[in-house]
């Protein structure tokens, strides 16, 4: 029973971590608050759904197509809007402005999807067999979700850790002003964060579509959870986002098991508020000098 709960918690948490890592990549580098992040997942989910339903494309192929599309979207947004915004605006104003811009984008994306596909929830069946091992029973789709999340996050971490460009991105997350001076290509890092950040959100959506109904407004809760997680882990802290995602996933699963689904949101927001008030720098962040 406990093992079962932990496992379910980990699969949920892994997807949260995937969403939070990508959200944090965008925030950490560019200081953009993407409250449309969940909507990118929604786009990925629709891509996966339609490809499967109309063209019999299996979801694991969509795991490549969905991120390609959403990554391209990120690239276009960065080139078309945020590159200019980041050149013009600095400091706190970036965060405020980006929040509003993404809110606008989110309204456009959600309601365009609603215009195109209607609000009807849509779902398909794939990987829906049940796997049992060590007293744990899970659906295949959950296992696949866990595996995809682990691989994707691992790839990002490896890139950040072992490649020279990744080093640049990490330095940028640490200190923007200093990075530009020591010759780090800020534009590359921003482009990277936009493309990869959006692509991972699309990937998460494609994965989620295997076990959750797809609707135009499914992204909202994922955005919220994403923010809860990155606040827990520390804004801009990539490793913190991974741990935070797992913590929230476990917490949510345990909360539902112990108290019933009604209290899930109360619990998540309660913990979130408590952390933000007691440790605004996040559970794993260090207090910065001001």
């Amino acid at each position: 029973m406990i093992a079962q709960l932990v496992f379910v918690g980990l699969t949920t948490g892994a997807i949260y971590a995937l969403i939070a890592v990508s959200l944090n990549l965008i925030y950490g580098t560019m200081r953009l608050l993407n409250i449309g992040h969940g909507d990118m997942a929604m786009v990925g989910a629709y891509i996966s759904f339609w490809l499967f339903t109309l063209a019999d494309v299996p979801p694991y192929v969509s795991f490549l197509i969905a991120p390609a599309v959403s990554g391209l979207f990120g690239l276009l947004l960065y080139r078309g809007m945020f590159a200019g915004l980041l050149r013009r605006v600095q400091g706190d104003a970036v965060e405020g402005s980006s929040l509003l811009v993404f809110f606008g984008i989110s309204m456009v994306v959600q309601n365009s999807a609603s215009l195109l596909f209607s609000g009807t929830p849509r779902a398909y069946r794939y990987f829906d067999g049940i796997v049992e091992f060590g007293g744990i029973a899970v659906t295949e789709s959950r296992l696949v979700a866990l595996a995809v999340a682990v691989v994707a996050i691992g790839a990002v971490l490896a890139f950040l850790k072992f490649s020279i460009w990744g080093l640049g991105v990490r330095a940028l997350i640490q200190n923007r002003a200093a990075s530009a001076i020591v010759g780090i290509n800020v534009d590359f890092a921003f482009t990277f964060a936009s493309v990869v950040g959006f692509a991972l959100a699309g990937l998460a959506g494609a994965v989620i579509s295997m076990y959750q109904a797809v609707t135009p407004f499914m992204g909202g809760p994922y955005t919220t959870v994403g923010f809860v997680v990155i606040i827990l882990g520390g804004l801009g802290n990539i490793n913190g986002a991974i741990i935070g995602g797992l913590v929230v996933g476990l917490l949510e699963t345990a909360g539902i098991a112990l108290t019933g689904p009604n209290f899930r949101d109360l619990l998540i927001y309660g913990v979130f508020i408590a952390v933000l008030m007691l440790r605004p720098q996040g559970l794993f962040g260090r207090k910065g000098a001001h």
Binding site: F103, I105, V108
Partner: peptide, 8 residues
């Protein structure tokens, strides 16, 4: 959608 465009 228009609201979003206006905001942006």
């Amino acid at each position: 959608v228009i609201l979003g465009v206006v905001l942006v």
